[in-house]
Design a protein around this nucleic acid. Structure first.
Lengths: 148, 148
DNA sequence: TGACAAGGTCTCATTTAGAGACCGATAAGC
DNA sequence: GCTTATCGGTCTCTAAATGAGACCTTGTCA
């Protein structure tokens, strides 16, 4: 059974579980980790424990606000450990918990796929620009350039 | 080399590539697929081609607006094929492209992890509620209910 | 004296997502 | 004939998420 078949089978099982999407583990975790920063932070922490400002440096385009918020969400889910040393100024180190480490396995699969297929995605994007999305031979001709 | 080490190695490679995050394939794809709906739609389509309204039924809590928008984004990235039959009313069927099918492999890994570890995540969440985040032994003592 | 660092929080403005009305053509129910 | 529903969306309006950047405290360095 290939991955597509297996995934499709799982998906129809979720459907059978009823109409409540929040009860589904996959929906639940995808809602948490499926944002712009969570998986990226987990990848950064896979490289080793890091302090708040070190994370901000290696991911320059995250705001302090989202960095703080996302780390607390990951901590709340048990994926990240937050260790505060009561020095002055305080020193806070974030690291992966064993649960967080276990997540690096599927995350590595995702990352590997991205590296391997990025070229094909870029090619598809280039085609999408040449032929506007949704346009094909049998559709309505291009709409007359009406203003507004 | 375990997954965590491999992922950490990849992460430090990205850092060496320079300060521009958008050039990184992983950042780029994570920004596209790392949202609330993209991976879920890919999982739904792994179950087989589906029409617009069928997708809306199996994922009841997505709005038509986001469904349309996300499908077009996936089409633009070459993961999903949109097939319009010029009947009246038009019949539009979405399916995975070969590239989209190849993504089901890492996605299945993610889904499998979620199913296997959801219990641990729930336990961590419960603990996080009992002991407010960031609180540990060497921090400021719990704000003693300064009764007198 | 002033600047800078730690690890955040706070407010404000912009961006994004969701709710729901609407569309045009057709077919079914009454 | 009238109402209703389906199809695959788009449109507007509002609510929520996000980003930018000021601010905080205590201490060290110049």
């Amino acid at each position: 059974m290939d991955a597509r078949t297996a995934l499709g089978a799982k998906f129809s099982q979720w459907l059978a579980m009823g109409p409540d999407p929040t009860g589904c583990p996959v929906r639940n975790l995808l809602d948490r980790l499926g944002d712009r920063w969570s998986m990226l932070l987990l990848a950064a922490l896979a490289d080793g424990p890091k302090r708040f400002s070190a994370l901000a440096r290696v991911i320059p385009d995250i705001s302090k606000r989202m960095l703080s918020q996302t780390l607390r969400s990951l901590e709340g889910d048990g994926l990240v450990l937050r260790d505060v040393q009561p020095t002055v100024p305080p020193s806070v180190t974030y690291s992966l918990t064993p649960l967080g480490e276990s997540f690096t396995t599927p995350l590595l699969g995702l990352v590997t796929w991205a590296e391997a297929h990025f070229g094909l995605v870029q090619a598809a994007r280039a085609r999408a620009l040449m032929v506007p999305i949704g346009t094909s031979a049998h559709e309505t001709p291009a709409p007359a350039p009406s203003e507004h």
